[in-house]
Structures are given as structure tokens and as C-alpha cells.
């Protein structure tokens, strides 16, 4: 989605920042409008004989500035952000930047790897299907990808765990690395981590493979059998080269779309996979933060995903202009 503003990235960034500000304000409001706050929710356990007296609750609230007007609290947050301070979690007092940092790497790796896998599998699949539309392989791949797409993610995770971890014992069951991994050398340690990521990445990517491959196929079918192709073949280009060059170009548009979706989904998208495979990622952090009313963490995550989204959109816009000549004209 872009108007006449492509050539003015500075303005784009400016409006982007305003958008970000607006979004953070809405999120802040929402976090304070929900019933309960970090103090009243506490740790979620209730024990008679160990309850906090009400006067102490008020003291605790004052500690966290929860008794002040919402706008004032937002102002305090904003002031800290400008100084580069993301604040401390209400839940365990650790700096928000630390909590985000630990998990960012994992979520990023997970998403990047699954995107890579999606592209690596879907583009050839889609291209092959487009080469011979209506053929048996086309129909079978179509059916298979649709079947895959219809399986809910947590269900797939469960099945993968049962087959590959429990029954076959080929891959680890959960977590980031094995208990003994710390003692390993660097390379085996990376391999250990890689092994732990195989199932989660598979889980995240199978849905996108269906979408992307059908998109590629749809876009390629026409162009591969049109005049342009005949002309190219007449010029002596091999089918393989044509496929590769053309397929990637065509696929780049939906790929960018997918990447564009990936970034906003960075925070929420992999929640399920993170839960099933016990991976400490951002999605899980976000859900927990909302249930715990941990406003600084919620805001930190919003800022992160918002920035990533905007960065993604702006770069995608610029790249669209490069790749799709229609847009340049438009």
C-alpha cells in the first residue's frame, strides 16, 4: 500500500513515528482499562494466612505509580523511552530490555528459519506445478499443500513431537538445547540448538508453504506459457534458467507480502509453537505480560513489534518500486 510518497523516505519515516506514538498510546490505555493491575493480580496464587493487608497493597501500587492518572504514567514512560530506558518489569523487576533481548534472538531465528524454509520449498513446488498445470503432480502437490494448510499449528506440533521425539527419538522434544549442551564445544553446541529448532521451524512453516506455493503457481502459470516464454526459448534460454530467473522475480512479490506479515506477527505469531516446544520466545512473553498486567513489558514489546513492522513496510514499499514496474508507473 503506497501512495505518491515513495521518493520521500524521510516523510515516510516521520509519519511512521507518529503512527508508532499513536499505537503505543492506545496500547497503554488498553492495558490500563482492563480490570485489575499488576498488584491485584499478584502471583496468581491465593493463600489464606499469607494475604497482603490492604494498606500494603496501596503502598505497592504507589511504588509502581499505578495510583497516578493514566496520562501521567504514559508521560513517564515516554520520558524514559526517549532516554533509552525501557523500564523494569512489574512482574519480576528485571529490566525490560533484558527480557526482550533474551528472547528476541530466539523468535527472530525461529521466524527467519521458517521463512527461509518456506521460500526454499514453496518456490520450487509452485514453479513445478506451474510448469505442468493440470497434471497429476500439480494436483497432488495442490492437494497435499491444502491438506497441510488445514492442520492447526498446535496439532501439528503435537504430532511431530510424538512421531519424531517420542516414537523415533530422532529429535529433541522441547527447549532450546539439551541439558548437557553447555559442556559441548561450539560446533556440536550449534548443532544441538539446530536440532532443537527443527520441529518448531517445521511447525511454523508448513502453513506458509501452502500459501506461497499456490501463489507462485498462480502467478507463474500465465507467464510461463505466454508469448514472453516462447520468445525467450526462441532466444535459447534453457527452461531451468528461465524458471529460476522468472520464478524468483514473480515470487518476490508474494514473498515480500509474506515477509511483511511476518514482522507484525513477530510477537504474537509464534506463541503456540513456543508454548508447545517450551521455547522462551517473545510470543509467550507477551501473553504472560498481558495476564500479569506487566505494563512495561507490554509496552516494550509493542514498541519492538511496531518498529519492526514499520521498518518492514517502508522497506517493502521501496523494494516493490524496484521489482514491480507497474507500481512505479502507478
Amino acid at each position: 500500500m503506497n501512495g505518491p510518497a515513495i521518493g520521500r523516505p524521510a516523510r515516510r519515516i516521520g509519519t511512521g513515528l507518529l503512527t508508532l506514538l499513536l499505537v503505543t498510546w492506545v496500547v497503554f490505555l488498553l492495558s490500563h482499562l482492563v480490570p485489575g493491575d499488576a498488584v491485584s493480580v499478584g502471583s496468581g496464587e491465593e493463600s489464606i494466612g499469607q494475604r497482603i493487608p490492604p494498606e500494603r497493597l496501596t503502598e505497592l501500587r504507589a511504588l509502581y505509580h499505578l495510583d497516578e492518572p493514566v496520562a501521567r504514567q504514559y508521560g513517564m514512560w515516554l520520558r524514559d523511552i526517549v532516554r533509552g530506558d525501557l523500564g523494569r518489569s512489574f512482574h519480576d523487576g528485571r529490566p525490560v530490555s533484558e527480557k526482550l533481548g533474551e528472547r528476541l534472538g530466539i523468535t527472530l531465528t525461529l521466524n527467519a528459519l521458517s521463512l527461509a524454509l518456506m521460500i526454499a520449498l514453496a518456490v520450487p513446488l509452485g514453479a513445478a506445478a506451474a510448469l505442468w498445470p493440470g497434471s497429476r503432480s500439480d494436483r497432488w502437490t495442490g492437494a497435499a499443500t491444502y491438506a497441510l494448510y488445514a492442520v492447526p499449528v498446535f496439532w501439528a506440533g503435537l504430532l511431530l513431537q510424538i512421531v519424531f521425539s517420542v516414537r523415533l527419538e530422532w529429535l529433541p522434544l522441547y527447549g532450546l538445547e539439551s541439558p548437557e549442551a553447555r559442556a559441548l564445544e561450539m560446533l556440536p553446541r550449534i548443532a544441538d540448538r539446530g536440532a532443537h529448532l527443527v520441529l518448531p521451524v517445521l511447525c511454523l512453516s508448513y502453513g506458509g508453504i501452502a500459501y506461497l506455493s499456490r501463489f507462485v503457481r498462480a502467478n507463474l502459470t500465465e507467464s510461463l506459457h505466454g508469448d514472453a516464454v516462447r520468445a525467450a526459448r526462441a532466444r535459447g534460454l534453457s527452461l531451468g534458467r528461465l524458471l529460476f530467473g522468472h520464478a524468483f522475480r514473480q515470487a518476490s512479490v508474494p514473498m515480500l507480502t509474506l515477509a511483511g506479515f511476518l514482522l507484525p506477527g513477530l510477537v504474537g505469531g509464534s506463541v503456540i509453537v513456543e508454548t508447545v516446544f517450551a521455547l522462551p520466545g517473545l510470543g509467550r512473553l507477551f501473553v504472560d505480560a498481558v495476564f500479569q498486567r506487566d505494563v512495561p513489558v507490554i509496552m516494550g514489546l509493542t514498541l519492538l513489534s511496531g518498529t519492526a513492522t514499520l521498518a518492514g513496510i517502508v522497506s517493502a514499499d521501496l523494494l516493490y518500486a524496484v521489482l514491480d514496474p507497474r507500481v512505479r508507473r502507478g
Binding site: 513431537q161 527447549g175 508454548t275 516446544f277 517450551a278
Partner: peptide
């Protein structure tokens, strides 16, 4: 820390 009960059981 294993948040999912079934995963922990496995």
C-alpha cells in the same frame, strides 16, 4: 521451566 504440561510429561 517447561510451560506445557504435556511436553513436560514427555
Amino acid at each position: 521451566v517447561v510451560p506445557d504440561e504435556r511436553t513436560a510429561y514427555q
